[in-house]
Computed example of a mutant assay.
Amino acid sequence: MEHALRTTVRGRRVEFPGTIDDIRASLPAEQRAEFDREIGAAPIMDVPLIAFRWSYPPEAREEDDEIVARIKAGEFAGVTYLDVDGDASAAP
């Protein structure tokens, strides 16, 4: 994929589709019509978010869900945040 996006999941580099055509090609055949309907009917400003949601690797989504669950449970180890000046700081 020429325009692949990249992220790290559990310490491993993962590539995912970076174009509408590549997203569509990466989907199982039974999901393509649904993707086409959703992306085709989307307001132009929503297209990037919808495309990202369809292209995001399941293992990355699972890792994100685990992080959110940890934060909701009150565990902030390894979490950083931006203060009002935009500086990154470790969570208290």
Rank of each mutant, 00 (worst) to 15 (best):
E2M: 07
E2A: 03
A4R: 07
A4E: 09
L5K: 03
L5T: 03
L5E: 01
R6E: 15
R6Y: 10
R6F: 03
T7P: 01
T7Q: 10
V9H: 05
R10S: 04
R12S: 13
R13A: 15
R13D: 12
V14A: 14
V14G: 09
V14M: 12
E15K: 01
E15P: 00
F16I: 08
F16C: 08
P17R: 02
P17W: 09
P17A: 11
G18V: 06
T19K: 03
T19Q: 00
T19H: 06
I20C: 04
I20V: 08
D21C: 00
D21W: 01
D21F: 02
D22P: 05
I23M: 02
R24D: 10
S26Q: 11
S26L: 13
S26R: 05
L27Y: 09
L27G: 12
L27E: 15
L27T: 12
L27M: 09
P28S: 10
P28M: 07
A29V: 13
E30P: 00
E30Q: 15
E30W: 02
Q31A: 10
Q31K: 09
Q31I: 00
Q31Y: 09
R32C: 01
A33K: 13
A33G: 11
A33M: 14
E34S: 15
F35R: 07
F35T: 12
D36G: 02
R37H: 15
I39A: 09
I39D: 14
I39S: 10
I39P: 01
G40Y: 09
A41I: 04
A41C: 12
A41F: 09
A42H: 08
A42V: 10
P43V: 11
I44K: 14
M45R: 12
M45L: 14
V47W: 01
V47H: 00
L49T: 12
L49Q: 15
I50Q: 01
A51Q: 06
F52Y: 11
F52A: 10
F52V: 11
R53L: 04
W54H: 07
P57D: 06
P57S: 07
P57A: 06
P57L: 10
P58L: 14
P58H: 07
E59H: 05
E59C: 02
E59N: 01
E62L: 03
E63Y: 01
D64H: 05
D64M: 05
D65M: 02
D65C: 00
E66R: 14
E66I: 04
E66H: 05
I67M: 03
I67D: 07
V68Y: 04
A69I: 00
R70P: 00
I71L: 15
K72L: 14
K72A: 10
A73L: 07
A73T: 03
A73F: 02
A73R: 08
A73K: 08
G74N: 09
E75D: 13
F76H: 01
F76M: 11
A77M: 00
A77R: 06
G78W: 12
V79Y: 04
T80E: 15
Y81R: 11
Y81C: 06
L82C: 08
L82I: 01
D83R: 00
D83N: 02
V84T: 06
D85R: 07
D85Q: 08
D85C: 12
G86T: 07
G86V: 07
G86K: 07
G86E: 11
D87P: 00
D87E: 13
S89Y: 04
S89M: 05
A90S: 13
A90V: 13
A90K: 12
